[in-house]
Every structure is written in C-alpha cells, then in structure tokens.
C-alpha cells in the first residue's frame, strides 16, 4: 500500500470540496454586470464605499449593522447580535460560501434597498470590502 494513493484520494476530495474565493465571486458578478449593462467598465471600491455607507430609501444602510468600518465587528441594529467583520482581510470566511453570499445579499439588499441588488452593486460592494485592511 502506498501513501501516494491516499494523498491522491485526499487531493481529489479536497478539490471537490474547495471553497470559493472572493475573486471567483467578483468574476461571476462581472459576467452578470456585463449582461446587465453594455456600459459596464469594471467595479469601483469608491462606489462600493459610497453604497456601503449610504441609505437607499429604507431605514438602514449596510453600515447600520456592519459599522462604518467593514473590518470591525458589527452589531445587528435591532437585536444587538454580534456580526463578524465583513472584510475578508480580517475575516477570511467571508465570500467563500456561495449559498451564504446569495442568501445574505438577497436578505440584506431587501432590507436596505427594498429590492434585489444589481450585479454592479454587488461587485462594487465586494471590491470595497476587499480593499479594506485592518
């Protein structure tokens, strides 16, 4: 029996269970953003920052729960429940699970904008939180 076969098996399963990286989400959002608008010219951390800190017609902004700094621990505006930092630089679990990313964009865009976010908004948001260091 050789160790190589075990390693091969492990590698195979590791590959099938690999988590997504934030860059993969950016790529998906980019594809969608191009489809949404022919005028798409790339994402912007600055636009993402404005989006993050502004209110969009509803009671809350992103910052209402995630604080003004995405690298900080947040707090649910209503229940006070602690929210782990958004910025992957301090919380590497962020933007690694497609189901979670989809779930939270759906919910939080509904709460903050009363509608679904566009791919441009999601891409700008992610570009911004990725740019935030400790």
């Amino acid at each position: 029996m050789n160790r190589n076969r075990i390693l091969m098996l492990l590698a195979f399963f590791a590959a099938t269970s690999a988590n997504a990286a934030p860059a993969e989400f950016l790529k998906d959002f980019e594809t969608q953003a191009r489809a949404e608008s022919a005028a798409f010219k790339g994402f912007s951390a600055e636009r993402g920052s404005q989006f993050f800190h502004a209110k969009h017609g509803a009671e809350w902004s992103c910052a209402s729960c995630h604080t003004d700094n995405p690298a900080s621990v947040g707090k649910h505006a209503k229940t006070d429940k602690e929210i782990k930092p958004m910025a992957p630089s301090v919380n590497p679990e962020r933007f690694t699970d497609a189901a979670k990313v989809e779930k939270w964009f759906k919910r939080n865009c509904g709460d903050v904008l009363n509608r679904a976010c566009t791919a441009l908004e999601k891409g700008d948001f992610l570009t911004y939180v990725l740019s935030v260091r400790k």
Partner: peptide, 10 residues
C-alpha cells in the same frame, strides 16, 4: 482519510 474528506465535502 476518506471519511474526513467526505465530511468536508459540500
């Protein structure tokens, strides 16, 4: 090893 890999698999 297989069990560990499977549990980690989505």
């Amino acid at each position: 090893a297989i069990a560990a890999a499977l549990t980690a698999s989505p």
